[in-house]
Design a protein around this nucleic acid. Structure first.
Length: 472
DNA sequence: TTTTGAGTTGTTCGA
DNA sequence: GTCGAACAACTCAAA
């Protein structure tokens, strides 16, 4: 039986449905499903804490779907695959779905050529992007650098994304008795149980992803275009961590929106967001230094401020600007932050505190359950103004105005900054302006129960405008 | 090669 | 309260 067995290597495609590599492998016969925790090889791209927590549960779920046949390893991928092949000489094929992190792309190429030289059949598939980055180019055969032409011309006028695949008809999982580890042996769960808050908000795994998508279709999509900007309304899909781990594919989403519903502005708007994910991956593929280097090199001389105290206040949600603090605490407690708030806290860190986007990138990387190399790098460069098709430098969010506009009743801010729960709405986003009497009635002592603003908005804004304008 | 039109998400100021 | 301009040119992508 083993001579017909194919090793299927799970990576960021932790699902059974619409899994092209798994589908093809299972057509050959039995599969030996494997997962390798190999991110020690990823250098600074090693997964953060929240992401590892999610991965643990997602693998647990996947293993259940595979009737306990998932084989788990830790270490260098090539060495481990060679060991498995050595332990099981009849096996002659290894399949996987492609990843796009630069270190992964390099490793995969090396693994493929090594295995092929040894006479092992090696096939990779597209499991996680609607369009392969190398297929979308300008008329001059160069990569796009602007989102709108990338999407409208590049993607929409290219081939239609494939339709999703069903569950493999015959899925027979083979267990490797030799060098596997148990899930518990992987260094995924932290020793401190800080993740209790996260457990309440997420349902991890393929089924959880499908449920989240269904809930979005039923409750979020209607008025998505307008509602997605308001963090307290449940209009956003919250699919980002599921997409990152491949618990759902963009093809399933794309196909569902195209086949089941008439085109609407809300639907188009959501698909455009999905296309931003494509653009992030596209930029990372064509510009592999995106996670580390300014996409626009004129930012290399930017005089970022090195201020650990301000950075710490931002990380812990103690800046004295309630909408910023609410966002940073949402991140800490739930492993997630609403998109609108991500822009506000990013603008605040980079433009008001003058701290490099690298620090924001690293904090998000550690705290987000949806931490994704392409999206996180792209997003931070966009916010800092140094990225591809980035925000213009004079676009500086005012945390008071943004709070009043997008959290008009204050539900979001009061949820995550409970010490302000009793302050009247007209002072919620600027408590330092409240009269003494009001603060007293609300049980607030500035500087004790809630901080004074750590930076002056007007002067930091004009510093940013001047500094950005001086870049050449 | 040159030209032309366009480009995610904002704020402030003054009329 | 509302509205348009300024913020600043620059680069991209296609004709």
């Amino acid at each position: 039986m083993l001579e017909k067995t194919t090793i299927f290597w799970f990576r960021q495609d932790l699902r059974i449905l619409d899994n092209p590599g798994l589908w093809e492998a299972s057509k050959n016969g039995p599969i030996m499903p494997i997962y390798i925790l190999d991110d020690a090889c990823a250098g600074s791209c090693k997964r953060g804490e929240a992401s590892r927590w999610w991965l643990y549960h997602s693998l647990k779920n996947l293993n259940r779907s595979l009737q306990d046949s998932l084989n788990i390893y830790e270490g260098d991928s090539l060495k481990i695959i060679l060991q498995i092949l050595k332990d099981h000489p009849p096996i002659k094929a290894v399949y996987w779905n492609r990843c796009y992190e630069p270190w992964r792309v390099q490793d995969d190429a090396a693994i493929k050529s090594f295995l092929k030289n040894k006479g092992i059949e090696c096939k990779s598939f597209n499991g996680s992007l609607l369009w392969e980055p190398w297929q979308i180019l300008t008329k001059d055969h160069k990569p796009y650098k602007v989102y709108t032409p990338f999407y409208r011309k590049g993607c929409l006028e290219a081939s239609t994304p494939r339709t999703p695949l069903p569950k493999p008809e015959k899925l027979i999982g083979v267990k490797d008795p030799f060098h596997t580890k148990t899930l518990e042996e992987l260094p995924l769960l932290p020793t401190k149980t800080w993740y209790r808050g996260l457990e309440k908000v997420w349902k991890i795994g393929e089924q959880g992803a499908q449920e989240a998508f269904q809930i979005f279709l039923e409750q979020g999509l209607q008025d998505y275009q307008e509602g997605r900007d308001y963090p307290f309304r449940s209009k956003v899909s919250r699919l980002s961590p599921h997409l990152h781990f491949g618990e759902i594919s963009p093809h399933q989403i794309w196909y569902c929106l195209h086949s089941n519903l008439k085109p609407t502005p809300d639907k188009d708007c959501f698909l455009k967001e999905l296309a931003w994910r494509e653009f992030s991956y596209y930029c990372l593929y064509h510009f592999p230094t995106l996670p580390f280097q300014n996409f626009q090199s004129k930012f290399d001389t930017f005089p970022w401020q090195d201020n650990p105290l301000l950075l710490h206040a931002w990380q812990k949600g103690q800046t004295g600007y309630p909408i910023v603090d609410a966002g940073m605490r949402e991140l800490w407690h739930t492993g997630y932050m609403h998109n609108r708030i991500r822009m506000i806290v990013a603008s605040f860190l980079v433009k008001n505190l003058g701290i490099s986007w690298h620090h924001g990138r690293d904090w998000f990387w550690d705290c987000l359950v949806d931490a994704d190399l392409a999206n996180n790098s792209f997003g931070w460069q966009w916010a800092a103004g140094s990225g591809a098709d980035a925000a213009p430098y004079f676009r500086i969010f005012n945390p008071i105005t943004q709070g009043e506009k997008f959290d008009p009743e204050g539900h979001y801010t009061r949820t995550f900054v409970p010490e302000l729960s009793r302050i009247p709405i007209e002072y919620l986003f600027k408590p330092w302006q409240a009269p003494e009497q009001i603060l007293k009635q609300s049980g607030i002592i500035l500087g004790q129960t809630y901080p004074y603003p750590i930076v002056d908005l007007a002067s930091s804004r004009s510093w940013a405008l001047q500094t950005y304008a001086s870049l050449k």
